[in-house]
Amino acid sequence: MKKNKYLILTILWMIFIFVMSQTPGNDSSKQSNFIVDIIIYILPITRDTLSFIVRKCAHMTEYAILAFLIYKTIVHIEKSLVKSFIFTFLYACTDEFHQLFIAGRAGQFRDVCIDSTGALIMILIIYIINKRKDKKIGS
C-alpha cells in the first residue's frame, strides 16, 4: 500500500507541474510577482533579478519534490537514486518541450538544467541520509 501511496503522489505532482507549465507567461509572472512583492522590501535587489531568482527557485523546488517522490516510489529497485534522477531529468525535458506550445512561455535547456539541479540536490540529500542510516545500523 505504501508503494501505491507514493506512486499516486508522484502522478499528482507530475500533473501539478504540467498544469503550472500550462499557465501562460503573463499569468505565470503574476504568480511569481506575489512573492517578489513581499521580498523586495527586505532585500536590496532589483525586481527583475529577484523575479528571476524566485521563478528559478520554484523550478528547483518542484523538481526536488518530484525526485523525492519518484525515489520513494521505486526505492525497492536497484540504483533507485540514479533512476530517480534520470526520470526527473527526462520529465523536465518533456516539460520544457510542452512549454514551447504555451503563449508567453519558452522551452529552454537552461530550465532543464535548473530543474535537474533541484533534483540532484534532493538525490544528494537522500544519499547522505541513507549513508548516515547505514552507519548507525552498522555500528
Results as ranks from 00 to 15, higher is better:
residue 1 M to C: 10
residue 1 M to K: 06
residue 2 K to Y: 07
residue 3 K to D: 13
residue 4 N to T: 14
residue 5 K to F: 09
residue 5 K to W: 03
residue 5 K to Y: 09
residue 6 Y to L: 05
residue 6 Y to T: 05
residue 7 L to P: 02
residue 8 I to G: 01
residue 9 L to H: 01
residue 9 L to E: 02
residue 9 L to S: 08
residue 9 L to T: 00
residue 9 L to V: 07
residue 11 I to F: 11
residue 12 L to W: 02
residue 12 L to V: 13
residue 16 F to R: 03
residue 18 F to N: 04
residue 18 F to L: 11
residue 19 V to Q: 04
residue 19 V to M: 10
residue 19 V to K: 11
residue 19 V to Y: 03
residue 21 S to E: 00
residue 22 Q to C: 10
residue 25 G to V: 04
residue 26 N to Q: 12
residue 26 N to C: 03
residue 28 S to M: 00
residue 28 S to C: 07
residue 29 S to Q: 11
residue 29 S to L: 14
residue 32 S to N: 01
residue 33 N to H: 11
residue 35 I to Y: 04
residue 35 I to P: 10
residue 36 V to W: 00
residue 36 V to P: 01
residue 37 D to Y: 08
residue 38 I to Y: 06
residue 38 I to H: 07
residue 39 I to T: 13
residue 40 I to C: 01
residue 41 Y to M: 11
residue 41 Y to I: 13
residue 41 Y to W: 11
residue 41 Y to H: 15
residue 42 I to S: 15
residue 42 I to G: 12
residue 42 I to A: 15
residue 43 L to Q: 11
residue 48 D to L: 10
residue 51 S to K: 12
residue 52 F to G: 07
residue 52 F to Q: 04
residue 52 F to V: 06
residue 55 R to W: 01
residue 56 K to G: 01
residue 57 C to I: 15
residue 58 A to V: 04
residue 58 A to Y: 09
residue 59 H to R: 00
residue 63 Y to G: 04
residue 63 Y to V: 11
residue 63 Y to C: 00
residue 64 A to S: 15
residue 64 A to N: 03
residue 65 I to L: 11
residue 65 I to D: 03
residue 65 I to C: 05
residue 68 F to P: 06
residue 68 F to I: 14
residue 68 F to Q: 03
residue 69 L to C: 02
residue 69 L to N: 07
residue 71 Y to F: 15
residue 72 K to H: 12
residue 72 K to V: 10
residue 73 T to H: 14
residue 73 T to N: 13
residue 74 I to Q: 08
residue 77 I to E: 02
residue 78 E to S: 13
residue 78 E to H: 12
residue 78 E to I: 12
residue 79 K to A: 09
residue 80 S to K: 04
residue 80 S to D: 04
residue 81 L to N: 00
residue 81 L to S: 10
residue 81 L to A: 10
residue 82 V to E: 11
residue 84 S to L: 13
residue 84 S to V: 12
residue 85 F to T: 01
residue 85 F to G: 05
residue 86 I to Q: 05
residue 88 T to S: 02
residue 89 F to R: 03
residue 90 L to G: 01
residue 90 L to S: 02
residue 93 C to E: 06
residue 93 C to G: 05
residue 94 T to G: 11
residue 94 T to M: 12
residue 94 T to A: 13
residue 96 E to V: 02
residue 97 F to N: 09
residue 97 F to M: 12
residue 98 H to N: 05
residue 98 H to C: 01
residue 99 Q to K: 09
residue 100 L to I: 08
residue 102 I to R: 02
residue 103 A to H: 08
residue 105 R to Q: 04
residue 106 A to Q: 10
residue 106 A to H: 07
residue 107 G to C: 04
residue 107 G to R: 03
residue 108 Q to Y: 09
residue 109 F to E: 05
residue 109 F to C: 03
residue 109 F to R: 02
residue 112 V to A: 00
residue 112 V to L: 02
residue 112 V to M: 06
residue 113 C to Y: 06
residue 113 C to I: 15
residue 115 D to H: 09
residue 115 D to G: 00
residue 116 S to N: 14
residue 116 S to Q: 03
residue 118 G to T: 08
residue 121 I to R: 07
residue 121 I to Y: 05
residue 122 M to K: 10
residue 123 I to S: 07
residue 124 L to W: 08
residue 124 L to F: 13
residue 125 I to A: 14
residue 126 I to R: 03
residue 126 I to G: 02
residue 127 Y to S: 14
residue 127 Y to R: 15
residue 128 I to F: 10
residue 128 I to A: 13
residue 133 K to G: 04
residue 133 K to H: 09
residue 134 D to M: 13
residue 135 K to T: 08
residue 136 K to H: 05
residue 137 I to W: 00
residue 139 S to I: 05
